[in-house]
C-alpha cells in the first residue's frame, strides 16, 4: 500500500503492467509530436513570434516614436488629441506603451507588412490586439520588433493585459486597418 513501505524491498524489479507500458509509450510519442509541431510551425506556420529584440533606452524609443508621428500623422482621433499615423507599408512603425496609453493610433493597410517596434517607457505592459487576439509582453528597456501583416480591415483595439497600476483598465489603444 502506498502509505507503507513496498513489500518487495527491491521495488524496481516489480513487473510492469502491460497497460502501463503501452501508456508510457503513447505519452512519449505524444510529447515528441508536440515538440516537433512547434518546430514545424516555424517553417510552415504564419504565426511565429519574432526573435528580434534589442535593448533600448526609454528616451531613445520615445524619440523614435515621436519622429514617426511627426512624419506620418494624418489626423487626430476625434477630439481626443491623439494622433493617427499612416506610415507607408513595409516601414518601421512604433506603438509606445506608457501609463496609461498606447501611443499613437496606427492606420495600416490590409495585407501589407510592417515592422512594429514595441516597448514601454515606464512599467511593463501587455500588448493585446483584439479581436484578432495577439498578446505580447512589453518591457521597459527592451524593444521587440514584430513583423505584422493585417489580414482583415476594420477597427482593432489594443488592450493592456499586464497589470500596470491603478489606470490599467483604462489603457486601451487602437489600430485601423484600411483596404
Amino acid at each position: 500500500m502506498a502509505i507503507f513501505p513496498p513489500e518487495q524491498r527491491i521495488w524496481w524489479k516489480q513487473p510492469l503492467h502491460g497497460v502501463e507500458i503501452a501508456w508510457i509509450g503513447i505519452c512519449l510519442v505524444w510529447a515528441l509530436v508536440m515538440f516537433f509541431t512547434m518546430i514545424v510551425w516555424h517553417v510552415i506556420g504564419e504565426q511565429n513570434l519574432s526573435n528580434e529584440a534589442y535593448r533600448i533606452l526609454p528616451d531613445v524609443y520615445q524619440e523614435r516614436t515621436e519622429a514617426m508621428v511627426a512624419q506620418y500623422q494624418v489626423r487626430e482621433e476625434g477630439n481626443t488629441g491623439i494622433p493617427v499615423v499612416h506610415p507607408p507599408a513595409g516601414t518601421d512603425i512604433y506603438m509606445m506603451a506608457r501609463l496609461w496609453e498606447w501611443w499613437p493610433i496606427l492606420e495600416l493597410e490590409k495585407d501589407k507588412t510592417y515592422r512594429l517596434h514595441l516597448s514601454s517607457i515606464d512599467w511593463q505592459h501587455g500588448f493585446s490586439l483584439q479581436p484578432t487576439n495577439i498578446n505580447i509582453q512589453v518591457h521597459p528597456g527592451y524593444e521587440m520588433v514584430v513583423t505584422l501583416k493585417p489580414n482583415k480591415s476594420g477597427e482593432f483595439g489594443v488592450v493592456c493585459n499586464e497589470y500596470c497600476g491603478i489606470g490599467h483598465h483604462t489603457m486601451a489603444g487602437r489600430i485601423y486597418v484600411v483596404e
Partner: peptide, 15 residues
C-alpha cells in the same frame, strides 16, 4: 486578466 473593467468606461479609446 487582472482587469477591473472590461467595459472600458473610463478609457479614452474603449474597446
Amino acid at each position: 486578466r487582472r482587469h477591473w473593467d472590461i467595459g472600458f468606461t473610463d478609457a479614452t479609446l474603449p474597446y
